[in-house]
Nucleic acid binder design. Structure first.
Length: 893
DNA sequence: CAGAATGAAAG
DNA sequence: CTTTCATTCTG
């Protein structure tokens, strides 16, 4: 059966998203749901119904396989094994790491995470371990018969073919709908999930609202305790986000498999658009001085959005949402603004009704000025995009003809196929158009391909939309193009992988078909499809809005909501204003959703990466600087931690929603999130301790975090002794650190270095130490090897030296230091390069070498210091020299 | 799709 | 002891 089911599944799964890589990795939702009992404290209320359902389900799946239960419905998916402490930690901190080291790829991030984890105090680890354990227990309870490695079944490999997206499952709820009762409930809301649930029921609404409420309760309770810093925002956001997520999930899931793609894409695209916007916004940097301007711009954005929405009632929500978003952006991303003036220029946009005009203006400005500054572009992008969204949505809504189609589509999903085709056509067109744009518009900055593309698209969209409104700024674009452009936006954005892959596929197909489709007049077709999408959005928005209202105190009956939504639709059809409102709402909701889901973060990261990757030579500096600055800024800022937390909390949101999800989410959120500084500090402390211990002095009770991982102090101290001087530095730094605020970049860098050192030392030690299982050792070895290897082409020499050092003599000096340093450099290179760039040569740009140079300089300086103290032998120096450059180069690359 | 990390579990 | 797999994403 199972095997068969799998095979069978493909249709469903394939349609849905990707299906599971392995036979069944469905989430814990199931377990969670069961688990709910344990976890649930307040949820019970909401869940009652669900619980009942669950119970029904449980009986079957209970015994051996919850999987089966799941399987029955969705397929055969098996619950995913619970994350261990480390994984949790990673999940929670990865974003941070990425922020800190934008250049780092995931692997690197993972490594760093590992380092952090290693450094993490046992006590802090405990929380994670506890959480993990709890998780596991719950999981086990849920599925008693669960086996981690189902050897017997072992479809894993077999099934793998389908796969592609484990994550997808999580992130997007399509699967979730299947799996969780809750999700199912939610899912039904709009359409028929194929599974079993009714299509659209008032009940669903109620359920949703209830869920939300429940979530609120839980959230409030927990959040307050967990994060005092952002009591209000998080709550709201979370709730909203959840609701939005749910809705999304519903939509995606609800749509029949075939439809799914269509519906999903639009929604996703929209989301992406938002994400882009947000990301772009975030990218805009504000220096402290410029801050006001930045705020203004953000606020402007918010205002615009709010303005766009003529409806007073909704305003608050929208504004709040936008503002929140803005805040988020600001908080999460520190920014540096090159030109405050530009921002100021933009400011005029404030007029509510004239927003469009203003936007046009801006747009014009953008075009004219865009060439000059990236920042401006970004900003423009953001605004234009926002405007474009509005316009597009409005246009869609305005085109009444399509409306019926939309509805039918939403509910029935019959048209989907046609739509798909059309869509594809659109895509093609848009794609082509996009290309055209790129070619025509600009090559000024070849650096950021992705970003550029996004910008282009946005611009194009904006142009098109605005063009519709009356600003025919660009003669290039023809009306059809406009249409396309609107659709284009969705595609362009670099979606999270999941989408990406899908999109890519689509694109491919489309490309093939491109010729044919392109020839056809897509205008009509595209328009309807767009409309549909937006309609969907509207619905969602309505939902969200309702949610917001509820939050705000105005609980509305589900029916009412439905009616409202309908009204909205109708109104939107008839009146632009209505549509606007919905748009606004959508925006806010989307933002929230994005934020909550963490898409924003991911997007941001993607953007960054894209920048980096594409524009190493050119603009990379800016990016690097920006990131660094942001990071430092955030760190420096008192609120930095908070901000981080906040962003994180939102990011944290587990894709698999549901109460269970919520519960976990809460818990997960409650988990302490440590800022890199903390780790640095710890490292330094650890160093100190080690050092101290090494010195023979009794361990100093390092006040706060001194607990440190004593792991391998003994071994360490030898090495530590060597690095006393360094430590000293670090110590001073450490002292400063507690404040966190007053760290200069240098200090941070140093700290980082020190930390790196410590880490390295730990690593080296680790090899010898029994700390971990065999795996660890292995891992470490590999890691080291990897480091060496990566650092230089020649693995053996460095490694040998390293090994010698480690093994041989504690008292050793020169070589070790070199090695360590080199490694240190290697590790730090990225960060250093960034920092160095920022500090030393901010202006310099487009010279890849320069980075390495700066880094080299730093390294050299450090080394010099070291040497001076140590007075290394000649041999050491040459080696260092030789190694250093190589390492640096590697790092840069 | 592999791979980086850690860890729990199973073989 | 070794293998499997959980999460996260880049190349």
């Amino acid at each position: 059966m199972k095997g068969g089911s799998r095979t069978k599944d493909p249709p469903v799964e394939g349609e849905v998203s990707g299906k599971r890589p392995k036979r069944k990795c469905l989430q814990w939702h199931p377990l969670l749901s069961k688990k709910v009992l344990d976890f649930s404290e307040e949820e019970e209320e909401d869940e009652e119904e669900e619980l009942e359902k669950e119970h029904h389900l449980n009986p079957e799946g209970l015994e051996i396989e919850a999987d089966e239960t799941e399987d029955e419905e969705s397929s055969e998916q098996r619950a995913r094994r619970p994350m261990n402490a480390f994984l949790l930690f990673c999940k929670r901190h990865r974003s941070l790491v990425r922020q800190e080291h934008p250049r780092l790829d995931n692997r690197g991030a993972t490594k760093i995470l590992a380092d952090w984890w290693a450094v993490l105090e046992p006590k802090e680890k405990q929380k994670y371990t506890d959480m993990a354990k709890e998780y596991k227990d719950a999981f086990m309870k849920a599925n008693p018969g669960y086996k981690w490695c189902p050897t017997t079944n072992k479809p894993v490999k077999t099934s793998s073919p389908t796969v592609t997206t484990r994550k997808k499952v999580w992130t997007f709820s399509p699967d979730s709908s299947k799996d969780f009762p809750i999700a199912k409930k939610t899912g039904r809301v709009e359409d028929t999930p194929q599974l079993n649930f009714a299509m659209a029921d008032p009940t669903q609404m109620g359920g949703l609202s209830m869920l939300l409420l429940a979530g609120e309760h839980a959230l409030t309770a927990r959040e307050i305790s967990s994060t005092t810093s952002f009591p209000e925002t998080p709550t709201t956001d979370k709730q909203c986000g959840k609701s939005a997520l749910f809705q999304l999930a519903e939509i995606s899931s609800s749509t029949s498999p075939e439809v799914t793609d269509n519906a999903k894409q639009p929604a996703k695209s929209t989301l992406f658009q938002f994400a882009e916007i947000s990301s772009s916004t975030s990218q805009i940097g504000f220096t402290d001085s410029c801050k006001p301007g930045g705020n203004s711009s953000l606020s402007q954005l918010a205002e615009i959005s709010s303005c766009t929405s003529s409806v007073p009632a909704g305003k608050q929500c929208g504004q709040s949402a936008l503002f929140q978003l803005a805040e988020m952006c600001l908080a999460s991303e520190g920014v540096k603004v090159e030109d405050c003036d530009k921002l100021t220029d933009i400011t005029p946009v404030e007029n509510p009704q004239n927003a469009e005009t203003c936007l046009d203006k801006i747009k014009e400005e953008n075009e004219s000025k865009s060439q000059n500054c990236d920042t401006q572009d970004v900003l423009n992008m953001a605004q234009s995009s926002s405007s474009s969204l509005f316009s597009s949505s409005s246009s869609s809504s305005s085109s009444t003809s399509s409306t019926p189609t939309d509805v039918s589509l939403l509910e029935t999903g019959k048209v989907e196929k046609v739509k798909k085709k059309k869509k594809k056509g659109k895509v093609d067109t848009m794609k082509t158009e996009k290309l055209m744009h790129k070619k025509n518009c600009k090559k000024r900055q070849s650096s950021e391909s992705d970003l550029e593309s996004v910008i282009y698209t946005i611009e194009a969209v904006a142009k098109g939309d605005w063009g519709t409104s009356g600003s025919g700024i660009q003669g290039e674009e023809t009306p059809p193009k406009r249409m396309c452009s609107s659709s284009a936006i969705r595609l362009n954005p670099m979606p999270p992988k999941k989408l990406k892959s899908k999109v890519k596929k689509l694109l491919k197909t489309k490309d093939q078909e491109q010729v044919n489709d392109s020839e056809l007049p897509d205008l009509n077709v595209s328009t309807p499809s767009i409309n549909v999408d937006f309609e969907t959005m509207d619905k969602k928005m309505v939902m969200i809005e309702t949610t917001d209202n509820c939050e705000e105190h105005v609980p509305q009956s589900p029916t009412h909501l439905l009616i409202k939504s309908e009204e909205k639709e109708s109104s939107s059809k008839i009146e632009n204003c209505g549509s606007r409102k919905s748009e606004r709402t959508c925006k806010g909701a989307l933002y929230k959703t994005l934020v909550s889901e963490g898409m924003l973060t991911s997007l941001r990261a993607n953007v960054d990466r894209g920048k980096r990757g594409s524009g190493r030579g050119t603009t990379s500096d800016h990016e690097g600087c920006w990131t660094e600055e942001n990071w430092s800024f955030s760190q420096t800022g008192s609120s930095s931690t908070k901000k981080l937390k906040k962003s994180k909390s939102k990011d944290d949101s587990l894709p698999g929603l549901g109460k269970l999800g919520e519960e976990f989410e809460k818990k997960f959120n409650s988990l302490p999130q440590y800022s890199p500084l903390t780790f640095d500090r710890k490292n330094s402390f650890a160093m100190k301790k080690k050092k101290n211990s090494g010195n023979g002095l009794s361990e100093q009770p390092k006040q706060n975090k001194g607990s440190s991982p004593s792991q391998k102090k003994n071994l360490f101290h030898k090495i530590v002794n060597k690095y006393k001087h360094k430590k000293e530095k670090s110590n001073s730094l450490e002292k400063a650190i507690p404040t966190q605020d007053a760290h200069s970049d240098e200090a941070v860098q140093k700290i980082k270095k020190s930390s790196a050192l410590s880490v390295i030392a730990s690593d080296s030690m680790g090899a010898g130490e029994p700390l971990v299982g065999s795996q660890k050792r292995k891992a470490r070895k590999t890691k080291i090897t990897h480091l060496v290897r990566s650092a230089d082409g020649r693995v053996s020499p460095a490694e040998e030296s390293r090994t010698r050092e480690l093994v041989q003599s504690p008292g050793e000096k020169p070589l070790k230091e070199d090695t360590l340093y080199s490694e240190d450099c290697y590790r730090e290179t990225k960060a250093q390069s960034m920092c160095s760039i920022t500090a030393d040569m901010p202006a310099v740009s487009s010279i890849p070498a320069f980075v390495s140079l700066a880094a080299l300089a730093e390294v050299a300086a450090m080394e010099n210091v070291h040497r001076s103290q140590r007075s290394l032998p000649h041999e050491g120096q040459p080696n260092e020299m030789a190694q250093t450059p190589v390492l640096i180069s590697c790092a840069d690359q």
